[in-house]
Nucleic acid binder design. Structure first.
Lengths: 220, 220
DNA sequence: ATAAATTAATGAGCATGCTCATGAATGAGC
DNA sequence: GCTCATTCATGAGCATGCTCATTAATTTAT
């Protein structure tokens, strides 16, 4: 009878053949999508093509991702998770002054997404749309699905706690988020060698930020 | 013979029956589009519906506007022209300090577009897309089709000329543009009475801007 | 083991934005 | 006025993102 033991003591939520197949299908979709997105960009890749390459039927994709946008967003979120993990592993950075932290964070993001410029760029702007599922600026009203903002919130809260900056509330996150948008926009249009100009802008901007902080610009 | 006089001395470029019809058709499209966009928003309005309401065939619309986005953008540009005209007519404002000017400009814009929230919102974010025809941040590289930025450039240049601010170069326009994006994003998500919160944010932000200027924040 | 119930996969089909070959209206040349 | 060239209007048709009723696979109950 080969131990039927009610399917692995209910430890993993993934055990039955059904869930196995489901997972496998999802991975096939993700693999195909990522490859095509990288090769041809987001807009130029059709859902039909993804399905063909994944070896599934037209409609199956939409059983897993509500829209093509959702599928693309998946990678975006994954990237953010990656960033958070990295920051938490950098113990030195944790104690550095806020501007340095922000520089490191943003810089790391730019480096990370460099190979997927077109792809990420498209997703990035998708995420800004008003009625899109995640909207960076709706900290309070929406459900804060953008993990990035949550992360920035933490970083700012830490700086607050060690008295580096006064209480900034949501406005701090708001500011950083907006700033990030600006940087990415600049980055996307930057054709200079190795995005030098964006890095320079990033540096200068954060220096300005420091000044504002030092001069008490926060208690407006 | 009723004076055939070679069609009105070549004064107006629009004279022949052909051009007359063309103009009439364009107006029919614009009227239908504006009405539908207002009523149902940008996404919910189909090009077929616009054509039906305008009394023209499916394909005709695309003889006049390359894409649906272009059609929508038309209103956006018109709005900007309106703003510029208004500013030039406000002689008092011309001499006011920069922060007040910017507040007035942005405030006026928000008031003006209030009735078309959804519609304008959609267009606004369209215009931010990387490969969209107009990209607010490509001052130097692209052809600066966004008249708004040109206008802001002028306002800043005037402030420079009267020694109110030091030379800020393109970074000034860049900053204001980015700031504007932030405000509109906030505005679009703002559900408070009469968008009070956005106005408060606008006020506070510009006060911060003033501080930065006074403290020499510009020569970073 | 078999039947019934659940859940995932399928692909025909829809609406939409947009294209393009064809036809109709208008203009120029005689 | 008539002819022909130009320009605009037309609508069938295409590709795409996405839906949904149907079919097939897997699980549960007996």
């Amino acid at each position: 009878m080969k131990r039927t033991q009610k399917r692995a003591t209910a430890a993993r939520p993934r055990a039955g053949k059904r869930d196995q197949n489901k997972e496998k299908t999802k991975q096939k979709i993700l693999a195909a999508a990522l490859r095509l997105f990288r090769e041809k960009g987001l807009e130029a890749t059709t859902t039909r093509e993804i399905c063909r390459k994944a070896g599934i039927a037209e409609g199956t994709l939409f059983n897993y991702f509500k829209t093509k946008e959702d599928l693309a967003l998946f990678f975006f979120e994954k990237e953010t998770d990656n960033l958070v993990e990295w920051f938490h592993s950098e113990t030195r950075l944790q104690k550095a002054p806020l501007p340095e932290q922000l520089f490191a964070i943003i810089n790391r993001q730019l480096e990370y997404i460099a190979p997927y410029e077109d792809f990420i760029g498209a997703i990035f702007f998708q995420s800004l749309k008003t009625h899109s599922k995640l909207s960076p600026l709706s900290l309070q009203s929406q459900e804060l699905r953008l993990r990035y903002l949550k992360f920035i919130s933490e970083v700012l809260a830490a700086a607050e706690e060690r008295k580096e900056i006064p209480n900034v509330g949501d406005l701090g996150v708001y500011g950083v988020g907006l700033f990030y948008i600006g940087i990415v926009m600049h980055w996307l249009h930057d054709s200079s060698q190795g995005k030098q100009r964006t890095l320079a802008l990033l540096d200068r901007s954060l220096k300005l930020g420091t000044q504002v902080l030092r001069k008490g610009g926060w208690d407006w």
